[in-house]
Design a protein around this nucleic acid. Structure first.
Length: 457
DNA sequence: TTTTGAGTTGTTCGA
DNA sequence: GTCGAACAACTCAAA
């Protein structure tokens, strides 16, 4: 049999990998498998340093796991992949289905360039492949809850077996790993499949039990921390789903909440699959009329937000966590996003772009639609008057200030009861910490007026 | 086609 | 401090 080529993209693992299983089967008993990763300038170029570094770590891990067999090539996949097929004499190319805006076009181009060589898509990075779940009338879901009901009713496949003793092709010329990135002091999560398994095992054993409530407390660090692994496919959500279900007897509520988060990921991927333009445009077309501030003054407010010096502790802590860990706690993402859009009156796309550039887990579907949800332009028919109050959110979810003190050391000595509104502290603002750059109550009214204007239009 | 129930994550006010 | 009601109507999903 001729070799089979497995082209890794956002599925950088060997376990529970249906496309890899398909490649091994295609190679038969005596054929080899050629593991390939293409460094595509169109994806690599726009990625921020944290994502590049994490991807690099995943490739290093994959190379180790395959005994050094992974072939790395840079360039346009529509040229690189057919070249490799010619070089190796591969009889088929195997991939996981990519539902992304760019990915599906790229794959179509590669498939055309391959001519008669089969381009085989097996599995996808989701529990349910985007586009598969439709309402009874045949149209896509626009609301999370009904989508989640349908997702749970449909069920998820069992994990695919990990192929053992794969005959990896040897001696195919490869480039080195892509260059290490200058992270400017950002502390990164460990990359690769084994690291992902470790994070998952720890979460499953230690934090899943309390997940339903503790996940909202940023100071407790009770979330799964699996987002980067899901983004790069070092873990598959199907694996997590199956292994979480094993605990459902004792921890039904926690497991349901956790699976609910996996479904959110699938939901937003599904939304983007049906409406690719919503990576840039409001999901709700009416919201195109929304007015956002621009100009030098707006730029200065954006800079204060981006650098974590707004004078609102929970906002500043969140943005400093973004720089410190290339990651932000989920609830705090909502708070800082709400602040940008509703207190500073800036376009959600500016914030989404900044997140995407700085997060290690930056995923187009989840990022853009998470922002759209907060901005009130997205899928959730949310009450327009839902405006996060950064002080109240801080007091409610970080009552002892553990989170804000971790990231904003200037607040270390401010007593708990003032830590989310240090400008009211009897001793005044601590040295080096700014006064609030805007008045929340005032800006809330401005935001509500602007939403009202869109509704009236 | 019509109807009905529901919609991730909120805030403020007044009792 | 705690609690329920009001916020204001609209869209979506499914019967």
């Amino acid at each position: 049999m001729p070799p089979a080529l497995i082209w890794f993209r956002r599925d950088l693992r060997l376990s529970d990998h249906p496309a890899l299983v398909a490649a091994v089967e295609a190679a038969g008993g005596d054929g080899t498998v050629v593991p390939v990763f293409v460094v595509d300038p169109r994806l690599w170029g726009p990625s921020g340093a944290p994502r590049r570094q994490f991807l690099r770590g995943c490739l290093a891990d994959l190379r180790e796991q395959t005994g050094g067999a992974v072939v790395i090539r840079s360039g346009d996949p529509a040229r690189v992949v057919p070249d490799l097929v010619r070089e190796t004499g591969a009889g088929s190319v195997h991939v996981s289905f990519d539902a992304g805006v760019y990915g599906r076009e790229r794959d179509a181009a590669v498939e055309r360039a391959l001519g008669d060589v089969p381009f085989v898509r097996t599995g996808s990075p989701y529990g349910v492949t985007p586009g598969r779940l439709l309402k009874d009338d045949g149209t896509p879901f626009k609301v999370y809850s009904p989508f989640a009901r349908a997702w749970r009713a449909r069920g998820v496949h069992s994990p695919a077996p990990r192929p053992d003793d794969v005959a990896w092709a040897e001696g195919v010329p490869t480039e080195d790993l892509p260059p290490a990135q200058d992270l400017r002091g950002t502390v990164m999560p460990a990359a690769g499949e084994a690291a992902g398994r470790d994070v998952w095992a720890q979460f499953r054993e230690q934090r899943l039990l309390g997940y339903a409530t503790a996940r909202n407390t940023p100071g407790a660090d009770a979330t799964s921390r699996l987002s980067a692994h899901l983004k790069y496919g070092t873990l598959h959500p199907r694996t997590l789903h199956a292994e979480a279900q094993e605990l459902a007897g004792d921890h039904a509520e926690a497991v349901e909440k956790f699976v609910g988060e996996l479904i959110w990921r699938d939901f937003y991927a599904d939304v983007l699959w049906h409406r690719p333009e919503t990576a840039r445009e409001p999901f709700n077309p009416q919201m195109r009329a929304m007015r956002y501030d621009t100009g030098p003054d707006a730029d200065e407010r954006f800079a204060a937000w981006a650098e974590g010096r707004t004078g609102y502790p929970i906002v500043d802590a969140g943005m400093r966590q973004l720089h410190g860990e290339a990651y932000v706690h989920n609830r705090v993402r909502m708070i800082v996003a709400s602040f940008l859009v509703k207190d500073l009156h800036l376009d959600w796309r500016r914030g989404a772009r900044f997140f995407f550039d700085h997060l290690v887990d930056g995923d187009l579907a989840s990022n853009q639609h998470g922002w759209q949800w907060v901005a009130g332009t997205g899928t959730d028919p949310s009450p327009y008057y839902r405006v996060f109050n950064p002080t109240r959110q801080g007091q409610q979810f970080d009552p002892d200030g553990a989170y804000v003190r971790r990231w904003v050391p200037e607040l270390r000595d401010v007593p708990d009861r003032y830590v989310h509104e240090p400008w009211t502290a009897p001793g005044g603002l601590p040295e080096g910490y700014p006064a609030p750059i805007v008045d929340h109550a005032e800006e809330r009214r401005v935001a509500l007026d602007r939403y009202q204007a869109v509704r009236d239009a």
